[in-house]
């Protein structure tokens, strides 16, 4: 009973504030709007989902969002693995502390400041083009590539930290044993380290994938392309039910992703 009383606050918040807002979102996705005022009419229907299926543009946008979220995740895994490995297994104590600070440092500054700096970096007269110009090259400019670059940068710490934590947990003796038994470094990495660190990679990928899928500010600032979040944002005033219906798409994708992640063992050590 006492445990129940203690939990009442947080659970109440979870039910009303968190799941409640999701419930509202789900209900709203079945509502309609009055064409003149844009006011919500509370009639249940499937028109919004019908629109999402009938109009090819929504499929394009959903696909673009999912593909870029996937690319950002893969990029961050490739970048994070060597960094995290160096932090966990190679660096001295001092070096390790410095690297942890270096990884966390970008999280101390505002998200907007970081995206706007990338806007400057990638702009026509920006530092990137200035650097590439002597080589006869030209930066990617604004577009999908820019979104991919910026998102990979933004969410990299969320990938490094879980992988680092996962690698820390692997006893060094396992690596030594593998070497003693004659495995080459590559073989040790594939057969000993990877299986043990894999759940941590999946855990990190949940962050990078979901954060990319939900973002709408970066696509707006460094490209002209719409993500799911942009369409939701643009429709909120005028057609809240359609916005809600489209917002259900990333929820479904994330549920699928989490189910796969659970099968891959991402939640076994939580």
């Amino acid at each position: 009973m006492q445990v129940g009383t203690l939990l009442a606050g947080p659970v109440g918040w979870l039910v009303i504030g968190y799941l409640g807002s999701l419930a509202v979102l789900l209900i709203a996705s079945f509502w309609e709007v009055d064409p003149l005022s844009g006011e919500v009419v509370r009639n249940l229907s499937l028109t919004n989902f019908q629109t999402l299926i009938d109009e090819p543009v929504y499929r394009t946008i959903a696909l673009r969002t999912i593909v870029i979220a996937g690319l950002v995740t893969v990029t961050d895994v490739l970048l994070a693995l060597p960094i995290a490995f160096y932090m966990a297994k190679v660096a001295s104590r001092r070096g390790k502390a410095l690297l942890v600070v270096a990884v966390l440092l970008p999280l101390w500054s505002s998200y907007l400041v970081k995206v706007y700096s990338w806007r400057t970096i990638l702009s026509e007269n920006g530092p990137l083009n200035w650097l590439l110009d002597p080589l006869g090259l030209h930066g990617p400019g604004f577009g999908n590539v820019a979104v991919w670059l910026v998102m990979s940068y933004l969410w990299l710490p969320y990938m490094i930290l879980p992988i680092y934590a996962g690698l820390e947990r692997i006893p060094n003796s396992l690596i030594s044993a593998s070497e003693d038994l004659g495995a080459r470094p590559g073989h040790t990495f594939r057969r000993v380290i990877m299986p043990l660190v894999f759940p941590a990679i999946v855990a990190g990928s949940i962050f990078t994938f979901s954060l990319t899928m939900g973002d709408y500010i970066t696509p707006r600032l460094v490209s002209n392309n719409q993500f799911i979040g942009n369409v939701v944002f643009n429709n909120i005033t005028n057609d809240l039910p359609l916005a809600s219906a489209f917002a259900v798409v990333p929820i479904l994708v994330m549920i699928g992703y989490l189910l796969v992640a659970r099968r891959l063992g991402a939640f076994e050590h939580i």
Partner: peptide
């Protein structure tokens, strides 16, 4: 065309 159509069309213009 009413404003809802305009909003929908604008989404397709931007792609």
């Amino acid at each position: 065309k009413d404003y809802n159509d305009w909003v929908q069309a604008w989404t397709t213009v931007k792609g």
